[in-house]
């Protein structure tokens, strides 16, 4: 294996899903990096061995969907240890999780669930982020959520919460632009104040994805091309925050690899144009 590259390149990458493993390894398309869901590679076997081959050709970002950083109970140490072993095997260029909870202590909801943004929840999540960072020995990136409801008890916005979390734990922020767009439509979140709230130097990665609409509600299904409004928001983020490694995510009704590469190409060209205008 190559020596670990500790940073993602400031280029566009794609979320790599099982149906494209073989093609990517065969074609080796000119991608900056790839991202996979951590839990699909826990322990050993065929999936992990494919990922290790991918890692020989691209920087890999491990994106977790199961840690439940804001769950009320103690952190799941078995889950955390499995993530640690995966990091040791793959030597990822980034490791990320979502700003969400998934366990009541009685049962787990295998989804990304929002919670009230309060001082108390901030200190709870901070402790757990520190536990994860200590265990895996690296900075964790935390992603903003797409939510379909919010809480009367919240004392701050999600953007402010993330900014505080980054300040208190040193974690990075994974800014999902589609999630912000979904929240702006569903919950009335103001995208510009969200972006303003984020400390630019803590933002380490962008996500871009498509969504769908159900009963007037935008649902973050990762099942379509990035829409124009999200591209606009992305350009705004590039201006305000700067260029960062950018991922095209597509998890359902996944199209040909060429479509993903096309979307990644658009993101790449937005970054390059932003760069041109700065020179």
């Amino acid at each position: 294996m190559q020596p670990a590259s500790h940073f993602l390149p400031v280029r566009a990458g794609i979320g790599l899903r099982a149906q494209h493993y073989e093609q990517v390894l065969e074609m080796l398309p000119p991608l900056g990096w790839v991202e996979v869901h951590s839990e699909n590679f826990f322990e050993g076997g065929a999936a992990l061995h494919t990922l290790i081959k991918v890692r020989e050709n691209y920087p890999v970002s491990l994106h977790g969907v199961g840690m439940g950083l804001a769950s009320p109970g103690p952190i799941d140490h078995q889950h955390l240890s499995a993530l640690k072993r995966l990091c040791d095997r793959v030597q990822p260029a980034a490791v990320s999780e979502h700003l969400c909870w998934n366990s009541t202590g009685e049962f787990v909801v295998n989804d990304l669930l929002p919670f009230p943004y309060t001082r108390a929840s901030l200190s709870h999540v901070s402790v757990r982020v520190e536990q994860v960072q200590e265990k895996i020995g690296r900075r964790l990136l935390i992603e903003n959520l797409s939510s379909y409801l919010s809480f009367a008890r919240s004392e701050m916005s999600e953007g402010e919460f993330l900014a505080e979390l980054a300040k208190s734990t040193g974690c990075g922020i994974l800014f999902d632009v589609n999630n912000l767009y979904v929240n702006s439509k569903n919950l009335g979140v103001d995208p510009e104040s969200f972006i303003r709230a984020l400390p630019s130097n803590a933002v380490m990665e962008y996500h871009l994805a498509g969504h769908s609409v159900r009963d007037g509600c935008l649902v973050d299904t990762h099942s379509d091309r990035v829409c124009n409004e999200v591209w606009d928001l992305y350009r705004l983020a590039l201006q305000q925050v700067g260029n960062r490694p950018t991922l095209i995510e597509w998890d359902n009704d996944t199209p040909d690899l060429s479509v993903l590469l096309e979307e990644a190409g658009i993101a790449q060209s937005h970054m390059e144009h932003r760069h041109d205008s700065m020179v």
Binding site: T104, F107, V109
Partner: peptide
């Protein structure tokens, strides 16, 4: 805030009502 989280969880798994959530648009 834990209470909100548990209420939300039970609303998902057990179809319970939820009072702490704010309805959007």
């Amino acid at each position: 805030w834990f209470e909100d989280v548990l209420e939300f969880g039970n609303a998902i798994r057990n179809n319970d009502a939820m009072s702490g959530g704010i309805g959007p648009n």
